[in-house]
């Protein structure tokens, strides 16, 4: 007669070939507990070491960053400053020229125009030739 697992469900569910008695269970539980707690302690120690290393690395990186920032901005600031000076210098002759032209009287202005015209004619002749 074939074995009917539906009819025997209670027996099959409530019995197991893997059953462990209480003493064996407790002994196994203790073994696992010891190993789990040891693993956890090891993990938390390595996490602490990792955290400390991370803090040192962060401090070094921070110092490096500050240093790098200072060394980058200091010459940059100098360049900007010198750039400003150069800009001022470049602007000043123009202003100076404007001021000088404004201060010229009529005859002096005529003379400057005459000078420019002569120069332009000379240049044209040169290009024509």
């Amino acid at each position: 007669m074939p074995y009917n697992i539906e009819e025997q469900e209670d027996y099959l569910k409530n019995n197991s070939p893997y059953k462990m008695n209480d003493t064996e269970w407790r002994a196994m539980q203790e073994r696992i507990k010891t190993n789990v707690l040891a693993a956890s302690e090891k993990e938390s120690k390595s996490r602490k070491v990792k955290f400390t290393s991370w803090k040192i690395a962060a401090a070094v990186a921070g110092l490096f960053f500050i240093g790098a920032t200072c060394f980058t901005f200091w010459p940059a600031q100098k360049t900007i400053q010198s750039g400003n000076i150069a800009y001022d210098k470049a602007e000043n002759p123009e202003k100076q020229l404007d001021a000088a032209i404004n201060n010229l009287n009529e005859s002096e202005l005529n003379w400057v125009h005459q000078l420019n015209e002569n120069e332009i004619t000379e240049q044209n002749e040169y290009f024509e030739n």
């Binding site: 893997y18 462990m20 196994m28 696992i32 190993n35 789990v36 956890s40």
Partner: peptide, 24 residues
């Protein structure tokens, strides 16, 4: 959990190892 693992891996020592890894 042990019964579940044991039904999957069958061996007593294997089940203990797997349960330990689970608990870790």
């Amino acid at each position: 959990l042990y019964a579940h693992i044991r039904r999957m891996v069958a061996g007593e020592q294997d089940a203990e190892d797997v349960l330990q890894e689970t608990m870790i």
